[in-house]
């Protein structure tokens, strides 16, 4: 109400706005420069590939999480669903004797199903997404243990292929790029993606404008489930086996990546590119601290501070923008 112009503003490169809108990217660049200076081990081909592989799981999970957060929800179950999907895929292959590619698709289908249940519980069952997915976290992790009896299951060759290499390029990096493109396409170009922003921004306004809010919510969680399953299969592929405790706690990394990337937990804001940068920030920090021989205990402290810093900067940015 108070921001109408009196004088036309000069259009020039406004570095302040650029920094404010790309805080995570600037942070990542500064971080990388610092690490290049601090240790010769950072800028090596092998280390960069390692970072790529490590980021693939977190980023793929976080892409799915981005949909949910943009639409105004939260999904605490992605880590557990990733583990369940991989374990189910292993079970389809080993115990049910299905062909490898069927087992792979079966794993993705399990993720889809878990996501649909999350979405339906939220949209139709009126459970807050925090509660619905917290329940799913427990159920999915429990089922993973039930299926595996607490022991790893060998994965199909098709799944292991996801953890392998194409020539010099690790397959997880290829999958990561494809997943980023697909997620970005969904969010930016499709009716579904645009609807997510509307639902997250103001669900009632979206509903009164004729958007099928409940169906959108179910689809959003279903997508998060599929992305989680993909991340789970990537992880299993790297190890050639589905682990019962795989991806435990990864939901928090995913949420952190999305938030560092500039999304708002109250919904309506967020980008795949931001999430990707957020995931890179997390992984590069861990990688750098490892190279510098910082203990994993201290790493957790640092990661926590980074999350607080990123979100604090975000709050500050929103405050100045709305004044």
């Amino acid at each position: 109400m108070s921001t109408t112009t009196l004088a036309p503003t000069r259009r020039s490169f406004d570095y302040k706005t650029f920094l404010a809108n790309n805080g995570a990217l600037v942070g990542l660049v500064v971080l990388c420069i610092a690490l290049v200076i601090a240790t010769p081990d950072f800028l090596t081909g092998q280390n960069l590939l390692n970072i790529g592989i490590q980021v693939s799981t977190v980023a793929v999970l976080a892409f799915g999480m981005t949909f949910v957060i943009v639409a105004g929800g939260i999904d605490l179950s992605v880590g557990a669903v990733a583990a369940l999907s991989a374990m189910a895929s292993g079970w389809f292959f080993v115990s049910a004797g299905m062909p490898g590619w069927v087992a792979l698709l079966g794993g993705l289908a399990v993720g889809l199903l878990a996501g649909i249940v999350n979405g339906a519980a939220n949209a139709y069952g009126k459970l807050p997404s925090f509660i619905a997915t917290l329940a799913m976290l427990s159920v999915a992790r429990g089922l993973t243990l039930v299926i595996s009896d607490g022991r790893p299951i060998k994965t199909a060759a098709e799944v292991s292929f996801l953890g392998g290499n194409i020539g010099p390029v690790p397959m997880p990096i290829v999958i990561l790029v494809l997943a980023a493109l697909v997620a970005s396409f969904i969010l930016n170009r499709t009716v579904l993606g645009r609807s997510m922003y509307a639902v997250g921004g103001n669900a009632e306004a979206a509903r009164l404008s004729g958007l099928p809010v409940k169906r959108i919510i179910v689809t959003v969680f279903a997508l998060a489930g599929v992305f989680a399953a993909l991340a789970g299969l990537l992880l299993a592929g790297r190890l050639d086996s589905a682990q019962p405790q795989a991806a435990a706690g990864y939901e928090l990394d995913a949420i952190a990546a999305v938030v560092i990337g500039g999304a708002s937990l109250s919904g309506g804001l967020g980008k795949i590119s931001g999430t990707f940068i957020g995931a890179l920030v997390l992984v590069v920090i861990r990688n750098g601290l490892n190279l510098l021989n910082v203990s994993s205990f201290w790493q957790q402290v640092v990661i926590g501070l980074v999350i607080a810093l990123a979100v604090g900067a975000d709050v500050l940015r929103r405050k100045t923008r709305n004044s």
């Binding site: 509307a198 921004g201 306004a205 004729g210 708002s264 309506g268």
Partner: peptide
């Protein structure tokens, strides 16, 4: 504000919700 508009979305987006699909 509560029922008509998605306040953080652009003017363009807000004008288009009813015809998005």
């Amino acid at each position: 504000k509560g029922q008509g508009l998605v306040l953080d979305a652009s003017v363009n987006d807000n004008l288009g919700y009813a015809t998005l699909a």
